[in-house]
Design a protein around this nucleic acid. Structure first.
Length: 216
DNA sequence: ACATTAAGTGATT
DNA sequence: AATCACTTAATGT
């Protein structure tokens, strides 16, 4: 089958160095392939998690949202990553505490929950991968907390722009001031003013619906 | 040409 | 740093 071959080669590309072949093959067999277009939500607040996503290509942004709809960007998930949180959530049939939106067009493989702990026993590489993933996820959380607690908004905005440039692989960042304000959970006016100051300092250049990062 | 959406600004808290 | 109230600029129809 053509589709399987494609999944298989993507899997190999992203996970071939970490996971053993037998496991990869089984993933192709049981996993459900899914394509998400940029901007599309993969997982929403309060949805029940039924599968663990393995990112094959693209990137997702993980957003925390409170009951009033206030958003805050937590971190990005890139290809080769998975959300370890979904692992436990998924096994306990918990509801999602976050929202996952595709930053770019992305492809992923959804692994049904029944295989998750079964594989822990069968495949050593799976176990270390899951643990490793927990670790990176936790690091990302700490980084997000640090940013929130210790950085001023201007520093946060700059970090935000840099992170965005990193995952999109481009210094031309497509976003309105309002969208950035949502991600940082602040107001558009503040973002506009900070961006303007950054432009004066030569760090960025502004265009409509777009910001160009000059100093990385 | 007109309406809509994005961005800029001064004043106030 | 947030909010308001308004202006100006860019874009779509």
């Amino acid at each position: 089958m053509k589709v399987d071959e494609k999944i298989s080669s993507l899997l190999n590309e992203q996970y071939g160095f970490i996971l053993e072949d037998a496991l990869l093959q089984e993933m192709v067999k049981v996993g459900q392939f899914r394509h998400v277009k940029a901007g599309e939500a993969l997982m929403d607040y309060n949805e029940t998690i039924t599968a663990m996503p393995m990112l094959l290509s693209g990137s997702l942004k993980i957003i925390r949202e409170d009951k009033d709809g206030n958003e805050l960007l937590l971190y990005y998930l890139e290809s080769g990553d998975t959300c370890a949180m979904s692992f436990t959530c998924c096994m306990g049939q918990k509801k999602s505490q976050i929202r996952a939106v595709a930053e770019k067009d992305s492809e992923l493989l959804l692994i049904p929950s029944e295989y998750l702990d079964k594989w822990l026993l069968e495949y050593p590489s799976w176990k270390s991968y899951v643990f490793e993933s927990y670790h990176t996820r936790l690091d990302e959380f700490l980084e997000a907390i640090d940013a929130l607690a210790f950085m001023k908004l201007d520093e946060r905005l700059l970090k935000y722009l840099r992170d965005k440039a990193m995952v999109t692989g481009s210094t031309e960042l497509q976003a309105t001031h309002q969208e950035m304000a949502y991600d940082l959970n602040t107001s558009r006016v503040v973002v506009s003013r900070l961006l303007k100051q950054m432009e004066k300092e030569g760090v960025i250049k502004m265009h409509r619906n777009k910001v160009e990062l000059i100093k990385l």
